[in-house]
């Protein structure tokens, strides 16, 4: 199921990057959101979290912030078998 989440995160990151005219490098579990190679800023990351909530119906941060640095760490915060809904 984390595989599904990884794919979903990669898909939405690509969409956010494309909106800015940027191309996304390959995204894997160890890819860092900020401070790495991704052409995104904190507003883009905020957008990703809002869209993930729209698509999964889950907000892992409801009770407060949980530290994450990489794509894999974020994916592990969501529990689902398949994404629902559409952006």
């Amino acid at each position: 199921m984390t595989e599904t989440m990884l794919a979903l995160i990669a898909e939405e990151l690509a969409r956010i990057a494309a909106d800015k005219g940027e191309t996304l490098p390959p995204v894997g579990p160890d890819t860092r959101f900020l401070g790495g190679d991704l052409p995104i800023d904190s507003l883009d990351l905020a957008t990703l979290l809002v869209v993930l909530e729209q698509r999964t119906g889950q907000d892992p941060f409801r009770a407060g912030f949980i530290q994450f640095t990489t794509v894999g760490e974020l994916a592990a915060l969501y529990r689902l078998d398949a994404p629902t809904g559409a952006a």
């Binding site: 009770a63 407060g64 912030f65 640095t69």
Partner: peptide
């Protein structure tokens, strides 16, 4: 929040941490 993410496990030994400009949250 973004700074903590970008630092990862490395980071400076801060003596003073100040927040402003937005409401803070307890977590």
């Amino acid at each position: 929040r973004a700074f903590l993410m970008a630092l990862g496990t490395s980071g400076p030994a801060l003596a003073a941490v100040t927040l402003g400009g937005e409401a803070v949250d307890q977590p």
